[in-house]
Structures are given as structure tokens and as C-alpha cells.
Design a binder for these strands. Sequence first.
DNA 1: CCTGGAGTTGTCCTA
DNA 2: TTAGGACAACTCCAG
Length: 477
Amino acid sequence: MTRIVWFRQDLRLTDNPALSAASQHGSVLPVYILDDTNAADWAMGGASRWWLHHSLQSLNHSLQGRLLLLRGDPLSLLPLLSEAIHADGIHWNRCYEPWRIARDARLKEQLKDSGIAVESHNGSLLWEPWQALKQDGTPYKVFTPFWRKGCLLGAIPRQVIPAPSDLDCLSLGGSPYARQVGDAGITALNLLPTIPWDQGMRATWQIGEDAVRQRLREFLDTGLGDYKQGRNFPARPNVSRLSPHLHFGEISPHQVWTEAQRHGAENGADENLDCFLSELGWREFSYSLLYHHPTLMRDSLQSKFDHFPWQHDDALLHAWQRGQTGFPLIDAGMRELWQTGYMHNRVRMVVGSFLVKNLRTHWHRGEEWFWDCLVDADLAANSASWQWIAGCGADAAPYFRVFNPVTQSERFDPQGDYIRRYVPEIAALPDKYLHNPSAAPAGVLREAGIVLGKDYPEAIVDLKDSREQALAAFKGL
DNA sequence: CCTGGAGTTGTCCTA
DNA sequence: TTAGGACAACTCCAG
């Protein structure tokens, strides 16, 4: 008998509970379905699609070209496929986006009614969101107790599952079955851009299961040692850059957890290891928030923010999006995002704070832009993080937490290495004025050959004024 | 039910 | 130059 393995956000062979379970029943048909019909507003953005193309290619390669690629509605495709190949069961690893939960629940009902076994597995979270609860059975709203009590004191994450050694993949190549359900093939999924905006991305990333395991080893060997401090400096190589791989499931958090613990056991566990593991905790926390608050992507957790006096100015928003704000750290971050599909975490906070507080733009605008541009765009992490920086999330972020992009720049990119990489037109400025060209004396600008407003924008907003206005608006709530 | 300590990531002013 | 305190008040969470 054959079991279908429906790949979704688990594009790997190692530590894949659904694949391993299915393979124990006999032959396996691996399938991926590009589902734009059920996602509504949260269909994958452009950068994510680009990543997906390469990740699917890598997975297909690992499966000796046996991955069936379809596009359409799984609710109709999977019953058809099951019938066509006489599958007696379907396995998948759980997803936690509300629309996916709803879709999968419907599908499960449907398949069970037609006598097909359905098994869902946990492939992407260390702790299920319905397990990490307070004593009284309700979900946590604050990270620290969630992580320390709800997670770390709970069940130990399961062992990593080896890739199936004797995988028997059903091949449908050219068979009528594949055509019956519409074998799209990877190019037909149209995941790649029609105009070549992906050059910077291709130069930045190595995609796929083998590549990410190498990346993890490299990070543990060279980045973890000074993680706690170094991770704040965007020019330093101390962040893991695992997020897109984790999002698409080329690696599981269990693998990261296990490898990091092993590294700690061999080299000494310290606050750097704890700090890194707690970043996995933030991922878990975001998923927990989304699971228990299914409208997290839309509704502010603190409803008083419904009355916040947001402003909207297309020109200011556009300047932010394209990295033309006149604040070099902001512009470097937004251009890093545009060019590579990624932005350093410290800089994400600074650009987010700037958009929401200094420009007083609704956090939805930032959320949407990141969704389209990030290769690690993840509904849980993106929604939770924008709410956090906007101050409307579950954690009571102090109202006075407004990042100053110039101060942050001086503190975390003191030599300007990050800025000069992404904002080369001001590279000739001395470090002292690199962080805020609008404050540079005319002579310094002339010396560097820069005309503000022509070669590089004047600051689009007054930091002091806009900060005070944001604080006043908050006070008015 | 009550109580008290704590809450990822900051900034600015003052002494 | 640098360190410390102010900046609201509230909710969360565990005992």
C-alpha cells in the first residue's frame, strides 16, 4: 500500500515525523501543493516564493526527482490523488496558521469519511501551543514565564529522527495518475520573478537541507561564542541566519536544539547558548500567540490601540520602503531587505520603531511590506514582532521605548561597516557624520562630495519632534 | 482573593 | 565623560 506524504513547511528528509511514519507502512508518494486558494490575504510574498522554488528543487533532488508538484486546492486535489493511486493514508506535519488549521481540519474530515487514514505529526515546534500553558490552563502572555516555566520545565523535546534509510518512493513520472490531478512541475509553479530582482538573493543564500546543516555547524563554531553581545551588531557574523530555513522546514527546531546542546556539552554551555536557545523560544512564543489569538495579524492585542491616531503619508511610506529616509541605518536595513530578502534583527527593531513611532504609520503597513520582501516571512513571527515593536502586543512594552536610529547606529555599527555596504553613496563621510548626514557641516559634506537632497536624502522627519508626538499620542490613549 | 515582584532589545537629562 | 534615575501605569504571573 502507498501512503501520501504531503510536504508543506517541512522540506527535509531528516527529522521529518510525517515522512518517517509514512515510510513504515510501505511505499510513499511525496507531494507538494502550491495553495493560493485558501490563504486569502496571506498568500506567500515574492521573496518567499523565490526561496520556495529553490527549496523544492533541493527536496526534489533529495527524493531522486520523485516529488510530485501541484498547484491548486488541496481540498480537492488530495482526495483525487488518493483515489487515483489507491493510497490508504496521508501523513503531514502540522502547520499553525489559522487558515491552514481550518483547511487541514476540513480535509481531515473529508478524507476520513472516504476511509483514508490521516495522521498529522509535530515537525516544527518544540512544544505544542496547547501544551505550554499556565497552571490554570490558559496561555501565557509574557515571554519569560512562557519560556522558563511553560517550555523549559515541560517535556524534553523529542529526539531527532534520522532520514528514512530505505525510502520507497512511488514514481508517477509520465503516468496517467499524475496527469489526472495535474502535475505542474516546478517551472509551472511560476515561483521565480519574471524580472531578475533576485540577483542579490542568489548571491546571499544557500538553500536546502544540506546547506542549512552546514550553516548551523558554521554558526555554532564561529558565531555562538560571542552571540549574546555580537548578535546586536549587524556587521558582525554572530547571528545564525537560520530563520528562512526554519520557516520552510529545511531544518527543524529539534535539530537546531540538539546540535546547539551538543555543542554546548562539548565546548561549555554558557549565557551565549542560553541566549541563542531563547531565540527558538521566541519563535515558539510567536506561534503560541498566533494559535491562541488567530487574528494576531490584524487586531492589536491591546484594543486601546484601535484608537491610536495613526498617520498615513504615501511619500513617507515609500521613502521607508525604498531606504530613502535620510537615516543611514534605516536605509541600510531597508536596502538589505530589498536586496537579500533578509534584515538583521537589531535593524528590524530600529526600522520598525521608526515606521510606527517616528512616522506614526500603522504597523500593518510594515507587516505587509515585510511579508512581501522577507525570505523568512512567517505569519506568527511577523505579526507578533510588529505588535511588539508597535507596543500593542501582549508584552507590556514600555511606552517610552522609541529607538533613536542615530544613537542605535552609533552604538551598533560604530565603524559604519554595515551602512557603507548598503548605502555606498555616503561611504566617504567620516564615521562621525556617517550616522546622520543631515547633521554634517557643509564643509564635511563638500569634502565627501555629497549634496544632500541629490546624492542622498535629507532626513525626512525630525527625530525629537516626532518622538514627542508619538509619546503624546500614546498618552492620549 | 490578595500580594508583590517583574516585564528582550531605550532615551534623555542631570549630577 | 559617565553613571544613575526618571519616564505611567498596568498587566501578568506565581506564591
